[in-house]
């Protein structure tokens, strides 16, 4: 029962995070933390224009942070998932997309951990778009 607590993939992302690097001169960035547990995630990324559609596309995405498995592994998975997606698509992502991505059910408290990275990413892009 306990082994199903976190999927193996999630644990792998926590232990060996992807895209946990620092970008020089990122196009967009954001820092965010969860006051109830102290988890923090910062997001940085680069953008490019799609030569055919003209849409803004994420060309590079990186994160940094500290906290629980859910917050950090989700950040890692999200940075992989969002690469080469359009800004518009990412601003439309929601809670359900994240739960689909990490494949676990979460209560309301832990849901906030899972949504931290998305919130940071969307905040950063929103700031950029505005």
């Amino acid at each position: 029962m306990v082994n199903k607590l976190y999927q193996e993939e999630l644990m792998e992302h926590f232990k060996y995070p992807k895209n946990k690097i620092k970008l020089d001169n990122p196009d967009f960035f954001s820092d965010i933390h969860n006051p109830s547990c102290g988890d923090s995630v910062s997001i940085q990324g680069m953008l490019k224009k799609d030569s055919q559609t003209g849409d803004l596309i994420i060309s590079q995405l990186a994160f940094d942070g500290s906290g629980c498995v859910i917050s950090q592994a989700t950040a890692s998975m999200l940075t992989q998932f969002c690469k080469n997606k359009t800004v518009k698509d990412i601003l439309n992502l929601n809670k359900d997309d994240i739960l689909k991505l990490i494949k676990i059910e979460l209560g309301p408290t832990r849901l906030r951990c899972a949504l931290l990275a998305l919130q940071a990413l969307q905040d950063a892009l929103q700031k950029y778009v505005e």
């Binding site: 029962m1 306990v2 607590l5 976190y6 006051p35 109830s36 547990c37 102290g38 988890d39 906290g67 629980c68 498995v69 859910i70 832990r110 951990c113």
Partner: peptide, 25 residues
């Protein structure tokens, strides 16, 4: 190991206890 992860694990064993910064940041 983050306290919330431990707490989530313990929860699966019906153990209820507090994790976090206990309203004393």
């Amino acid at each position: 190991i983050h306290a919330h992860d431990l707490s989530a694990f313990l929860n699966k064993k019906n153990i209820s206890l507090r994790s976090g910064n206990h309203c004393a940041q």
